[in-house]
Simulated assay, not measured.
Amino acid sequence: MEDLVNIERESLKESSIHRLDGRIKLMVTFIIIAFAVGSSSISILILMELYLLILITLSNVSPAYAIRRLILILPFGGFIALFQPFIRPGDVIWTGPLGLDVTIQGMVFGALLLGKITVSVTAIILLSSTTSMQELVGSARRIGVPSDFAMLLNLTVRYLFFFYDELERIRNAQKTRCFDIWNKNTPYRWRLRKVGETIAMMFLRAYEQGERVYLSMLSRGYTPDSRMYTVRTNPGRGDLLFVATNISLLVILYLIQPGLWW
């Protein structure tokens, strides 16, 4: 939850990229990810990663913070690339124990897969670090995301921090009663039961809060046909320049890609 707070704190900074229209940043992120996924050149992926790191630096987002987030997220998909040299058929360059063979094709494919994942995650980090959660939901709604899905996202973002505060109150109450989940002197089964009670209590409070919110929405005229209010804004010159710059860069990378040897 502390990471969510840090993300929101970074998104409230001031820079030219922070001031861009959320729809523009969202669509450019999708385009960059689609281009990275379809790319077959490691050199192109390296250039795209360097470009995204430059944007992160220009957006006044701490590079150390962005790299730390990248390191934390990358292992969830990066480990798949590590197995490719051992499971992908091709020219064997090394034979290890237990009959594991390392192939050139596997190493190339693994490096390519790791590059695609890295570029995609970096693009998402740039988007989330320069756009608040509420603005992301509103931007998604304005580019055509179904209203029901957008409303669920909106409610999730709005009450995520509320439930974190509820959890903190429960944990503080437990601490005042000398409960510590990591205390090895306490029987394991008793600690496990208390954790289960905490989860059950959070579930009940979430259900009760959901009922209160729904009744409040009904009392204010909410119906299944209601639509979320979104502020209508037109892209400015900076937004159009940002789109043109990114599309031009991707076109150039696409044109020079056949001339690269790797």
Rank of each mutant, 00 (worst) to 15 (best):
M1G: 12
T29V: 01
I32H: 03
I32E: 02
I33V: 12
A34N: 00
F35W: 02
S39F: 00
S39A: 13
S43T: 10
L45E: 01
L45A: 01
M48D: 02
M48G: 09
L50A: 13
T57R: 15
L58P: 08
P63F: 04
A64T: 11
R68G: 01
R68Y: 07
I71G: 02
I80H: 03
Q84L: 11
L100E: 01
V102K: 00
I104Y: 08
L112T: 04
G115M: 09
V119K: 07
I124L: 15
L126P: 13
S129L: 13
T130R: 07
S132Y: 05
M133V: 09
Q134K: 14
Q134P: 06
R141G: 12
I143F: 02
P146I: 08
L153E: 05
R158L: 11
Y159F: 15
F161T: 10
D165Y: 12
R169A: 14
I170F: 03
R171P: 09
A173V: 06
Q174D: 06
K175L: 10
T176E: 14
R177E: 10
C178Q: 12
W190C: 02
R191S: 13
R205S: 08
Y207L: 10
E211P: 06
R212W: 03
L215I: 02
L218W: 06
L218D: 03
S219H: 07
R220V: 08
T223S: 14
T223M: 04
R227Y: 07
M228R: 07
Y229K: 07
Y229W: 12
V231E: 10
N234H: 08
L240D: 00
I247N: 11
Q257S: 15
G259M: 07
